[in-house]
């Protein structure tokens, strides 16, 4: 993919990748549409859409409750819900829609198959974790946590923040990126020798697509779970 030409544009002195902006926008609109249409006509006795939405909210709250102390879950609920929905749709959308310009530059794919998107989210998690730590424990206790269990642990603690940031972002990127890349490879196989390879490639493509859909869901779940774990680590005083 790195060999393909990339469509970019300049705005406010920053360089944007068209693919990321377009697919990000598509996912954004999808999330808004889903949330908007399932939250119409809210009632005490939930109907179809509301049931789905409430199940989803319970699900993401459940992920957060797994690690964040019960009293603080409510403050991260909205963030966890939005993150999960956005990542999930980001992971899945590239499996079904991939658009490229005639010159070969992709303009529509999974936003999470680009490390900048996943690292952005992972950076956001790290920053929320820092802020949450300061908010909950105060500056002194928060930064004292870096020097536990003893003072010489400080470099390791700082280094750990960076590794957390990188692994969190790159894990989801790697899975989604490889999934899409293999889909492309299978497609190349399918079109290599006409109808025969097409027939052979079809079940492989279907199997891989299904597997990737599964992996995408898992990765979204893992991302939110690990994010809540990182946050919860900052919320409590280490012994």
């Amino acid at each position: 993919m790195s060999d393909d030409p990339v469509s970019t544009f300049q705005f406010l002195g920053l360089t944007f990748s068209t693919a990321n902006v377009v697919s990000g926008l598509v996912v954004f609109l999808l999330v808004v549409a889903i949330v908007f249409f399932t939250s119409r006509k809210l009632a005490m006795k939930p109907t179809k859409g509301q049931n789905f939405l409430e199940w989803l909210i319970d699900f993401t709250n459940g992920i957060l409750k797994g690690s964040i102390p019960a009293g603080d879950v409510g403050k991260f609920g909205l963030w966890g819900f939005t993150l999960f929905l956005f990542l999930f749709l980001s992971n899945e959308i590239g499996l079904f829609i991939q658009v490229a310009t005639r010159s070969g530059a992709t303009i529509m794919r999974s936003p999470t198959s680009d490390p900048i998107a996943t690292l952005t989210f992972s950076l956001m998690t790290m920053m929320i974790a820092q802020f949450a730590g300061v908010w909950k424990l105060g500056y002194k206790a928060h930064f004292a946590n870096y020097m536990k269990p003893f003072v010489f642990w400080l470099p390791i603690s700082i280094f750990e923040e960076f590794t957390n940031f990188l692994t969190l972002g790159l894990r989801i990127f790697g899975v989604i990126f490889s999934g899409e890349m293999l889909l492309g490879v299978i497609w190349d196989l399918a079109v290599s020798h006409g109808i025969v390879t097409m027939i052979i490639a079809l079940p492989i493509e279907m199997a891989w697509q299904g597997f990737s859909a599964f992996l995408g869901a898992i990765q979204a779940f893992v991302f939110v779970t690990l994010s809540s774990v990182y946050i919860s680590q900052k919320l409590e005083l280490e012994e």
């Binding site: 970019t8 705005f11 920053l14 990000g24 808004v32 909205l78 690292l119 952005t120």
Partner: peptide
């Protein structure tokens, strides 16, 4: 993986995520 990263996208994602959270 040798990919070029465009940091404008980072800004875009952060802004859209915050906006999305607000809309939701």
């Amino acid at each position: 993986v040798g990919q070029t990263l465009y940091f404008g996208d980072s800004l875009f994602y952060i802004l859209s995520f915050v906006l999305l959270m607000w809309i939701i």
